[in-house]
């Protein structure tokens, strides 16, 4: 574990940003070379959404990993901002490519369809987190308030995973896997929180 920590300290944060945009560039490349199959719109939308969820899950894993002794906290902001980037691009793909700027239909969906409401809510909860991701914002809010605010990411991740599960037919494996990952990572926090309360009251 110490060697892993030592290794991670040698990785510059910018490398995480760089690695994080590679999947985006890959999608762009596949789009330009007709590599996304007969329905590139759905493929783009799905891949962007899945990447958003993957970075959300990765971000949620950082704290439990720290309990286990692996400290990746330096990368958490990059992971979180990459999640926000992919979820934003996913939304943009929906608005432009999928819905073709049919504002009326989107507005109707936005008040009527739970998977869209929940997906939009998950996106909305990420906005304040992205906005307050700077060092200056952390100082201004103070660490305690900043930490409280950033628990909103639990809502984003849970919302994103539920959104995915709600839009598929039947019960395919992928959306269930994301939801399971989010539930486990949030459950670990609850479990630890519960143990600490027991320890305190003892």
């Amino acid at each position: 574990m110490d060697r892993l920590n030592a290794l991670s300290r040698r990785v510059p944060v910018n490398a995480v940003y760089l690695a994080g945009v590679l999947p985006f560039l890959w999608i762009v490349w596949l789009t330009l070379t007709n590599g996304l199959g007969p329905d590139p719109v759905k493929a783009i939308e799905l891949r962007l959404g899945e990447l958003g969820l993957q970075f959300l899950v990765a971000g949620l894993a950082i704290t439990p990993l720290r309990w286990a002794g692996l400290n990746l906290i330096r990368f958490r902001r990059a992971v979180g901002l990459l999640a926000f980037f992919y979820v934003s691009m996913h939304l943009l793909a929906w608005v432009t490519l999928d819905m073709g700027l049919r504002w009326e239909q989107m507005a109707a969906d936005l008040v009527k369809r739970w998977y869209i409401i929940i997906g939009m809510l998950a996106f909305a909860t990420m906005i304040p987190l992205a906005v307050t991701s700077t060092n200056a914002a952390i100082r201004r809010l103070g660490p305690a308030a900043w930490n409280r605010l950033h628990r909103l990411v639990y809502v984003s991740a849970l919302g994103g995973a539920i959104h995915y599960l709600m839009l598929v037919k039947a019960w395919p494996v992928e959306p269930l896997a994301y939801l399971a990952a989010v539930v486990v990572l949030l459950g670990l926090r609850l479990w630890r929180h519960g143990r600490r309360q027991v320890a305190q009251s003892a």
Partner: peptide, 15 residues
């Protein structure tokens, strides 16, 4: 869960 008012024609292209 979703509207049936419109559809996407496969092969219509990105835009």
């Amino acid at each position: 869960r979703w509207s049936q008012a419109s559809e996407r024609r496969i092969g219509a292209g990105l835009f």
